[in-house]
Design a protein around this nucleic acid. Structure first.
Lengths: 138, 138
DNA sequence: TCGATCATTGAGACGAGATATCAAAATGAT
DNA sequence: ATCATTTTGATATCTCGTCTCAATGATCGA
């Protein structure tokens, strides 16, 4: 097994951030590692009855700021988290099952980059979301 | 003056929608007409102490559904409303002053339309947001 | 113009998602 | 092992809304 354990990766991330390695943070991270697709903070919270609500939210924020997680807002305004696979990407959001998927599109990036030059002020970043009915729901 | 009064326009919109023309709805609409840029529902509510909270939110929803208003979510998740100038558009959001501005870009639309063909599932719509520091804040 | 009907209102309860407070517990540098 | 500093979690609080329901008021037909 060449695979580093989840705990090892979390430990090194946390120390890189200058944050302490604690039990609750590991428990949140382990649960995240077992997830795929998108999930709500509240769902995680319910799956971790022995970790305080505030700590779940704090850890989610910590990991989002660190770029490990990605926070998206569904069209109705409800927030979803997903693992950030660490390249710049955008989201396909299924209006039916509310699943969030990543996608990348180089032509789109290029165009957005070109557009930035035309826009007054300084462009800091962008977000693109496509609302779809996914194959599974069709 | 060729200008139709706000009340007249609101009246005709409401009857087109099959909704009743009421005092509270007029008061909300008048305030909206005096606004420029983006605003939060709560701010409107505070400026209309004689209109019930529920009614403010209901009217905002009514007008959003009717396409008169446009609801956006700032990166931090807080919602903003703005007058929808009634063509498909996207948003420039100033990260500093949180102002929301509309923009249109035909090449971007064309590309997004082309992309829809490549994407598995059925594309229903899209949203593009550019985060900027606006001229005013620079 | 007058009622009858039915949409609308507003006070307040409720709910989701999230942050603030603060005493107690855990971490980790020494 | 010590101790300053972080972190935790119970709870209160906040924001943005929706729901309920009795009272009100707009509209339409006679």
């Amino acid at each position: 097994m060449m695979t580093t354990s989840v705990d090892d990766r979390v430990d090194s991330l946390l120390s890189k951030l200058g944050s302490r390695i604690t039990g609750p943070r590991r428990r949140v991270a382990r649960l995240l590692a077992s997830k795929q697709g998108s999930f709500s903070a509240e769902a995680l919270n319910e799956e971790l009855p022995d970790v305080g609500r505030a700590t779940v939210y704090r850890t989610l924020k910590l990991l989002s700021d660190a770029g490990v997680l990605c926070k998206t807002t569904l069209p109705d305004g409800s927030p979803r988290y997903s693992i950030d696979h660490s390249w710049h990407h955008h989201h396909l959001i299924c209006s039916s099952c509310r699943t969030v998927e990543e996608f990348r599109h180089s032509a789109l990036e290029r165009l957005l980059c070109e557009m930035s030059a035309e826009i007054p002020g300084q462009v800091l970043g962008h977000r693109v979301e496509l609302y779809v009915t996914c194959m599974h729901c069709l």
